[in-house]
Amino acid sequence: MTEPTSIEIIPDITEMNVAERLHKVGQDAITWLDTHTAEILIGLGFAAIIVLVMVGLRRYGRRWYERNTSLETWQSVVGRTMAKTRTWFMIALALEVVAVFSDAPGLIARSIGFLFSIAMVVQSAIWARSIILGFVEHRTRTDESSSEALGSAMKLIRVLVTFGVVAIAGIVVLDNLNVDVTGLVAGLGIGGIAIGLAAQGIFSDLFAALSIIFDKPFKVGDAVHYDGTFATVEQIGLKSTRLRAVTGEEVIISNTNLLDKEIMNLTRLNRRRVTFNVGVIYQTPPEKARRVPDILRDIINAEGHTFIRSGFTGFGASSLDYELQFDVQSANYEVVYNARHAIGIAIFQRFAEEGLEFAYPTQTTFTAAPDGEMIMPYPEGGWGASGDS
């Protein structure tokens, strides 16, 4: 006779553990509420004050931003960032304050702390992105030409900033979840190096364009000089800058190559200095030669320009040499060109009135007899004057 086989029913341990854990959490929560009522109320009071302050700051930030949406002032940049404070972050912050003040049970405290950490990381990423983009936009909104130049690069900048901020925030969140992020960080690093090497030229010109926009060595419409080229800036692009040479050609040069050169910005001159070299003949009487600097000074003052200096510089091969320096108070080269012309004509006219002769290359030949006595190179009275047939 066989004994009946008994079937043992094994309970689901996982479900039982979850149910027991939930029951325990409920019991702990009820006990916590009963024994820490005062602390919870105090924590709620502090949390309410903090939330009200943050709501007020968000409202004021939104008003600051709406007054100047073009981000021309730092106040509008900060205001836009404050306006991006999220409600769920305030709720998570309030829960964290209550948990800290009321000494919440372990599991509840850990859960609230975890949610607050996630909320803090995400909110910080939102603030960081807003600040970085606001800084870039603020620096470019102050100049129309710079803003236009950055228009083509702004989308790429937003993508790069967003990717960088999200990547950092994601790594921090995963680390809080106790996920090993070593491999992820290494992969991102290797990927970043590969992308950087592949697009080295593009990024180099992009950062050079940003350097031009931020540092502002020149802007659209400025006249610049580099490597013997005189040109006017017509467009500052993402990769290259276009200039119009004074001879009419369009010059296209990469931003990186342009910044490697020594650039002279001629538009920002508040004055231009002009130098004249003047020479008079050696037969000029010393009294008149001594008066030449004063004559030049009178000419400059009469024309309404700024006299700098004038004086004797040396004995030339065919002249007594003088130098004149004066400033024309204008950045416009056309004005300087006309002023130089007027000064030159005035010097020519005044020297004629004073009896001063301009020197020009001359050569005097002396002839001598074998004994060294100076003689005329031709018969006295000219050839044929002696009556010789």
Score class of each variant (00 low, 15 high):
residue 332 N to W: 00
residue 141 R to T: 03
residue 361 P to R: 13
residue 388 D to V: 13
residue 385 A to V: 04
residue 357 E to A: 12
residue 138 H to T: 00
residue 366 F to N: 03
residue 307 F to E: 06
residue 68 N to T: 04
residue 16 M to W: 06
residue 236 I to K: 04
residue 332 N to I: 09
residue 3 E to D: 13
residue 212 I to Q: 05
residue 230 F to M: 06
residue 252 I to M: 08
residue 389 S to K: 13
residue 199 A to M: 10
residue 101 F to E: 09
residue 243 L to V: 11
residue 204 S to C: 00
residue 145 S to T: 15
residue 253 I to N: 03
residue 51 V to N: 04
residue 161 V to K: 06
residue 23 H to F: 05
residue 26 G to P: 03
residue 353 E to Q: 13
residue 125 A to H: 02
residue 338 N to W: 09
residue 79 G to S: 11
residue 197 L to H: 06
residue 223 A to H: 10
residue 338 N to L: 13
residue 69 T to E: 15
residue 136 V to H: 13
residue 195 I to W: 10
residue 303 E to H: 14
residue 351 F to C: 08
residue 304 G to Q: 08
residue 320 L to Q: 03
residue 85 T to Y: 05
residue 287 E to C: 00
residue 226 Y to K: 02
residue 239 K to Y: 05
residue 304 G to N: 07
residue 190 I to Y: 06
residue 242 R to S: 10
residue 103 D to R: 11
residue 211 S to F: 01
residue 168 I to S: 09
residue 389 S to Y: 12
residue 295 I to A: 07
residue 80 R to A: 03
residue 330 S to M: 02
residue 108 I to K: 01
residue 82 M to K: 06
residue 326 F to W: 09
residue 240 S to A: 08
residue 176 N to W: 12
residue 261 K to H: 08
residue 89 F to K: 07
residue 137 E to G: 03
residue 108 I to F: 09
residue 128 A to D: 02
residue 91 I to G: 12
residue 292 V to F: 07
residue 177 L to G: 06
residue 76 S to P: 03
residue 124 S to L: 13
